[in-house]
Design a protein around this nucleic acid. Structure first.
Length: 275
DNA sequence: TTCGTCCTGGTA
DNA sequence: TACCAGGACGAA
């Protein structure tokens, strides 16, 4: 569920609260979510180890341990990581619990259990992390970069935006929002977007991602930050989840269709098909 | 490129 | 009771 802004909000909170804390015990409640490692080995490698810092690559969240390991989470649709200073777990869908020195706990909860968790050494990083494309707001994510990616690709622009190896961290909500801000129809073929359109889109992506972070993320259903609280960006969305409501720019009703199996929201007036 | 699949639960 | 969901991957 969480996209880059939501994961970044979680990262900031966890980094502030977990850095320097030592893991004293691990409860693996759903071993299936551990990737390529048994619950026993995972527990052994995490126990007694200090968390140095909390990082993020795209939508992946990384606990950097004071060993050669990282614990890597991908929250997928409904995963959440909450720091409980009092050690009390009130997540009915808790799947993995870290007990920390001093009595606090870090609780991984996941309703649909689609999330994945890795224990990796720095020499064998997670594939999705290693292949992550440049992130919005980073120096590498320039109009020129985006234009180069779009060139000669027939795929629909929205599908391309969701491909993490081209741009890291965009998900369904921010893809729809960025395309609206750039006035580009989501069905447009990437190669048909000209330089001006690519520049608009690059700026729009940075704008929606920055706004999402400033608003503490977008909460539609499940998302909560590291404190267990909701975000506010849902109050400022232009198209996502506004099917049938009036476009904030032109008043036309927002439409919803499906593209690549994902619900896709757009304003037919502000984002017409170019051909 | 598209689709089916992994899952559970809130909402229409 | 059916449908839909902030994701990603493998198969056809």
């Amino acid at each position: 569920m969480p996209e880059m802004p939501e994961v970044e909000i979680i990262r900031r909170y966890l980094d502030k609260n977990l850095a320097g804390k030592t893991i004293t015990a691990v409860d693996v409640l759903l071993p299936r979510q551990l990737q390529g490692i048994t619950a026993e080995e995972f527990t052994a490698r995490a126990s007694g180890v200090m968390i140095k810092s909390v990082g993020r690559v795209g939508k992946y969240l990384l606990l950097h341990l004071d060993s050669s390991d990282d614990i890597v989470f991908h929250l997928r649709m409904t995963g959440r990581l909450v720091y409980a200073p009092d050690g009390v777990n009130d997540d009915k869908c808790a799947r993995l619990i870290f007990s920390l020195a001093g009595g606090a706990r870090l609780i991984y909860g996941d309703t649909r259990t689609l999330g994945v968790i890795y224990m990796t050494s720095t020499t064998a990083p997670v594939k999705g992390v290693a292949e992550m494309g440049p992130e919005p707001l980073s120096a590498a994510f320039t109009p020129e970069y985006l234009k180069g990616v779009l060139a000669k690709k027939k795929t629909r622009i929205k599908t391309l935006l969701l491909n993490q190896k081209y741009i890291g961290g965009i998900g369904n909500i921010y893809a729809d929002e960025a395309l609206f801000l750039a006035r580009i129809n989501p069905f447009t073929h990437a190669q048909d977007i000209d330089a001006a359109g690519a520049a608009r889109l690059q700026a729009a992506i940075n704008e929606v991602i920055a706004a999402g972070i400033n608003d503490g993320g977008t909460t539609f259903r499940d998302y909560q930050n590291g404190e267990g609280k909701k975000g506010h960006h849902q109050e400022h969305l232009f198209v996502y989840g506004r099917t049938g409501e009036s476009c904030r720019e032109c008043g036309a009703p927002i439409e919803k269709t499906f593209l690549g199996g994902r619900g896709t929201h757009f304003c037919p007036h502000c984002q017409p098909m170019s051909e």
